[in-house]
């Protein structure tokens, strides 16, 4: 179902992931999080931006355990666990954070 962001229409697949990663803008994450009744904080944006950087560099969305480890390294050991990530994104970093970031479903996420 397409989503509306600042008067622009963005195509998504049947699971709600953006069809074109290059079309993404921050407003996409804002609109998607509103639909989930989630308020995006700086901590959320750290993860979303990290995911976009990761995709830019490696051309894939990282598997959850790869993301967890990387977050621990980049933002501090206390944040490198699934409890922290699920605290931010209750539906899961893959289903929520990657989707907000405009990435496809992570490779290795069955």
């Amino acid at each position: 179902m397409p989503i509306e962001v600042n008067g622009k229409t963005f195509e998504t697949d049947e699971e709600g992931y953006l069809s074109d990663i290059n079309a993404w803008e921050p407003g996409v994450a804002e609109v998607m999080s509103k639909e989930d009744d989630l308020e995006l904080t700086d901590e959320h944006w750290d993860i979303i931006n990290y995911l976009r950087d990761y995709y830019e560099e490696y051309q894939i969305a990282p598997a959850v355990r790869v993301l967890t480890k990387a977050v621990g390294k980049k933002f501090g050991k206390d944040k490198g666990n699934s409890k922290y990530l699920y605290g931010l994104f209750p539906y899961g970093p893959a289903k929520q954070a990657c989707r907000y970031a405009g990435l496809p479903k992570p490779t290795g996420c069955v």
Binding site: E57, V66, K69, A70
Partner: peptide, 14 residues
């Protein structure tokens, strides 16, 4: 075509 050569650099993370 999609250039997937950057993805080999992610193998270490996996």
């Amino acid at each position: 075509m999609k250039n997937f050569s950057p993805t080999y650099a992610a193998l270490g993370d996996y």
